[in-house]
């Protein structure tokens, strides 16, 4: 039996020691980095792990050069609608997915290089008032969108050429879905978190809404990041961007919660809180590690199974950090830390 653990005090002054700077890249033309990600890219028969940086009006692909340097291979110029975020597509090569919009997402596009004539192209996948989007394994994309009073939750199968091969509608819950997470190891299971603090579970094959389970009002607007099933329980990593500070738990950032899908009962397993004196966070999770940008301009890294803050990257002389993303599809954990001026630092964790 495991009870929810209050987070131990962070290590005695966690520093960047557990983060090793590998390389950094700087987009001289950019002054407005909005997101950063990694993608496997195939060219001339070889496959390389590349970095993707997004500004409001363009997205750039960076290929590895000798001695930990990066060279810009291509920049896609976008239209008038600004880029809001990059949408990683797990297990996918030579395909970049982006979400565009003003305050909310209104377009999802794919960026690619045509195999026919080696020309870099972009294609439109979806338009609408889109609340949440997530790339799934096997070149699938799930999104929730609103039209009038109706909510649509849809899975799109993407083709290698940047089109959509097929679409399936999932049964929507009554409340708005704000985030999705694949259930690892279960190809047909998907979870989502809603605007009224529920975790919902779908069967992706049939489109059925299987269960709605309440998270609790202490954690408003919880966001799911990762989910896996073990021993008949569904474990979900949630972040709590708006949770209130409490005496026993401090300022909660991430929780690992075990749900019994059969009874819809839940139990907190592990709890990670912000370092003392810090507030605000925008987080990203990979495996058992979480990272978040704090309002102080620092980046905090947690071990979610220990519930402990393991590293703190302070804001540098060039200014505070603005982005923290885990690189996808790398053998070892790699953190991408970005500043608004377009500088991206790669840290091995």
């Amino acid at each position: 039996d495991v009870a929810e653990q209050p987070a131990p005090a962070p290590l005695d002054g966690p520093t960047e020691e557990s983060l090793q700077l590998v390389s950094q890249l700087k987009d001289c033309l950019s002054s407005c980095a909005v997101d950063v990600s990694t993608v496997w890219w195939e060219a001339a028969g070889s496959r390389e792990l590349c970095v993707v940086t997004a500004c409001e009006s363009s997205v750039s692909l960076w290929k590895p050069l000798a001695s930990d340097c990066w060279g810009k291979a291509h920049t896609w110029q976008l239209g008038e609608v600004p880029v809001i975020q990059l949408v990683p597509l797990p297990d996918t090569c030579s395909l970049v997915c982006i979400a565009l919009g003003e305050l909310e997402i209104t377009e999802i596009r794919l960026l690619l290089c045509s195999s026919e004539d080696d020309s870099f192209r972009q294609s439109l996948v979806k338009t609408g008032t889109i609340e949440a989007v997530l790339g799934l394994k096997d070149r699938r994309l799930v999104s929730s969108s609103r039209a009038l009073q109706e909510q649509q939750v849809e899975v799109v199968w993407l083709s290698e050429t940047g089109g959509s091969k097929d679409r399936q509608t999932l049964m929507p819950p009554e409340e708005t879905v704000l985030a999705f997470a694949e259930v690892e190891g279960m190809r047909d299971a998907l979870v989502g978190t809603t605007a009224v603090n529920s975790v919902v579970v779908w069967n992706l094959k049939t489109g059925q809404l299987l269960r709605k389970m309440h998270v609790g009002y202490s954690y408003p607007a919880s966001v799911c990041h990762r989910a896996y099933s073990d021993s008949g329980l569904l474990f979900v990593v949630l972040s709590h961007p708006h949770a209130k500070e409490s005496k026993s738990y401090g300022n909660p950032a991430f929780r690992l919660v075990a749900f019994n899908p059969k009874t819809a009962r839940s139990m907190g397993v592990m709890f990670s809180s912000l370092p003392p004196g810090h507030a605000g966070r925008q987080g990203d999770v990979t495996d058992t590690s979480a990272a978040a940008v704090l309002t102080s301009g620092a980046i905090a890294v947690w071990d979610l199974l220990l519930g402990r803050c393991t590293a703190l990257l302070p804001p540098g002389p060039a200014g505070g950090w603005a982005l923290a993303r885990w690189a996808t599809a790398t053998a070892t954990a790699c953190l991408l830390a970005g500043r608004r001026d377009g500088t991206v630092c790669l840290y091995r964790y």
Binding site: M186, A189, L209, R211, K262
Partner: peptide, 23 residues
């Protein structure tokens, strides 16, 4: 986590809920 806290646990929860849920 124990059954006393979370209720009866089933290893086949996904298949069982799929069989019960409206399609």
């Amino acid at each position: 986590c124990s059954e006393s806290d979370l209720g009866p646990i089933s290893l086949n929860w996904f298949e069982e809920l799929s069989a019960e849920a409206p399609s």
